[in-house]
Structure formats: C-alpha cells, structure tokens
C-alpha cells in the first residue's frame, strides 16, 4: 500500500507550536549553560586569555591575544605545562582501570543475586548498594585515613610500610581500589534488573541441553545484557574522565593522582590561565564526544537488542 503523506491540520500545527514553545525553555537552558559556554571555551583555547590580568573586555582585544594553536602546543611541549598535563592524562588513563574491574565485580554479584534460590537477596542488595549513595567527600576522607602512610589500617593489616598516599603508583592504585568499591553497587543494581528481565525459557532450554551454570551465564545472560554492560562501561569511562574530588581530597593534590579536571581547575580557576585550561577542557570534550559517538556506532553492531 502506498503511504500517503498528509499535511497536518490546523489544530495539529497549533499543537506543534505549543510543544515547541514548551521545549524552547530547555533549548534556552542548554544554549545559555552548555552550547554558548562550549563555544567560548573553544574561543578561549585559541587565545592567551588571562582573566586576572584583564584590562579591556575579551572581545575588544581578541586580536591581540589570539595565539592560534599555541595553547595546544604548550600542553604537549612547553617545559612548564606539558609535564603537568601529560601526567594528568596518564593518571586519568590508569585510573580508568576501576571501570572494568568494578563492572566485573558487580556482574559477579548480580549473577549470584539473580539466582532465584538465594536467601536474603534484598538485604544483600541493599547493603552492597550503600557505597553508591554515600557522599564523595566523606568517603574520600575515610578511605584516605584507611590508606594513610603511617596510621593506615591497610598498611597495618598487610604489615607493610607502603606510601599509599604519596607514591606515584600506589596512590593511583589506592584510588582505583576505592572507586571499584564505590562502583560495584551501581553495576550490580543495573545488571540485576537486566538479568531478571531475561526470558526464563532460554535457561530451561539450555539446562535440557546440559549447560552448567557458568556456561549458561556466558552463553545466555551476558550476551543478552550487553546493552546494560555497555551503558555502564561508557558512563563509567565518561564519569571517570571527569574525576576531581579524588585528586583534591583523597590525594590532596598529590602529583601522582592529578587528573585532567584537576589540571583545568588549577590553571583555569586558581591561576586564571584561561587559554591553557580551555585548551585542556576542549580536548576533554572532544574525547568524550568521540567515545559517545563510537559507542553509538559499535552498539548498533554487536550489542544484543532483544
């Protein structure tokens, strides 16, 4: 049958106008608080703008302070800034480890809790999710004390004298441990919801074919819940790239745990070097956008869509 395209009637068009008027509120919000600031940020990144030494409005002297890709070059090569920046990038990349580890642990717990004959599943679920609710500041304070170089619980349990809070690698490892701890609950709740929605017939069929519990998990459950796992992976990576509180409170700004956002904060807000910080933040935005777009592309290809 041929599809006839009918022009919407007068009432429909009026409805459309009202709907647009309603969502224009959100458009204003997005433009004022996201899109315009991003454009400004990109503009800043091509200039030598220093807010503390501002003599005239930004636009009136944009020609004088324009330095092209100078900031981007400085981020990677300048002897004063490149060390900071590259270190922040490496730290961020290393601390991404907590995402897959947290997901693996959460999946394991969810797989157990999704079994119908586990007692007290609700209680376990409730307690394991608690770290997700707790505030980042309080948790950073307590973990910092547990990892303390001198008085820390972890050092005395292990009988070691490791410099958890000051060693370049140990401090990152400690943050990874802390974030795995904080991430298990989230993975568990989301994966559990996805697992409980899986059609029970698949399991029946697999049981008849002689598949054990492990096999059933990897051959049925995991492929079906890939969208959830993928969602967790992407949001986890994006969230992790924006880490800041951990560098500030857990590591109290220790170089071994400085992140890109910490870099932006140090150079942009504290030292007012807007150009340099904006260049870093533009790179961060581009990275996150690439991850998101790639995720959309990949998820079309290999993620199960039931």
């Amino acid at each position: 049958m041929e599809k006839v395209k009918i022009r919407p009637g007068r009432l429909k068009r009026k409805e459309g106008r009202i709907a647009l008027a309603i969502i224009s509120v959100k458009y204003v919000g997005e433009i004022v608080f996201v899109f315009v600031p991003v454009l400004f940020s990109i503009l800043y990144s091509f200039t030598d703008y220093n807010a503390a030494r501002e003599t005239a409005p930004f636009f009136s002297r944009i020609g004088d302070i324009w330095i092209g890709f100078g900031n981007y070059k400085n981020l990677f090569t300048h002897f004063m800034y490149s060390e900071y920046f590259l270190r922040s990038v490496c730290n961020n990349l290393f601390m991404l480890l907590s995402v897959p580890l947290g997901i693996a642990a959460g999946l394991l717990v969810a797989a157990i809790l999704s079994q119908p004959d586990i007692r007290f599943a609700g209680v376990f679920r409730m307690l394991i999710y608690m770290p997700v609710v707790a505030g980042a500041v309080a948790m950073n304070i307590i973990w910092r004390y547990m990892f303390d170089n001198q008085y820390g619980l972890i050092n005395s349990l292990l009988g070691t004298q490791w410099m958890w809070l000051t060693d370049d690698w140990l401090v990152k490892t400690a943050i990874v441990i802390k974030n795995v701890w904080g991430g298990v609950g989230r993975t568990m709740i989301l994966c559990l919801a996805a697992m409980l929605a899986v059609d029970g017939n698949y399991y029946e069929a697999a049981k008849l074919d002689g598949a054990g519990a492990t096999r059933r998990f990897f051959a049925i459950t995991l492929p079906i819940i890939t969208p959830t796992v993928f969602y967790l992976l992407i949001t986890g990576v994006i969230g992790n790239l924006q880490m800041y509180t951990d560098s500030l409170i857990f590591a109290s700004g220790d170089p071994g745990a400085q992140t890109v956002v910490y870099f932006i904060w140090t150079f942009g807000i504290r030292r007012s070097m807007y150009g340099l910080a904006a260049a870093a933040s533009t790179l961060l935005t581009i990275t996150i956008m690439i991850i998101t777009v790639v995720q959309f592309r990949i998820s079309d290809r290999w993620v199960f869509e039931g």
Binding site: E30, V38, F40, S41, Y44, I264, G268
Partner: peptide, 25 residues
C-alpha cells in the same frame, strides 16, 4: 530535537566551567 538536547549531556561540566565562572563573576 531530542537528540540535540541529549547531546548536551556529552559536554563535561569542567569544559563549560571557565566561561560560566567568568560570567558569574
């Protein structure tokens, strides 16, 4: 429309914070 609005979620707060801070200041 939905995609345009959702695309705002991709932008990290740290990337818009400098111009916003300046404006609020």
């Amino acid at each position: 429309h939905l995609l345009i609005l959702l695309s705002g979620l991709m932008v990290p707060y740290a990337s818009v914070v400098l111009p916003l801070y300046r404006a609020y200041y």
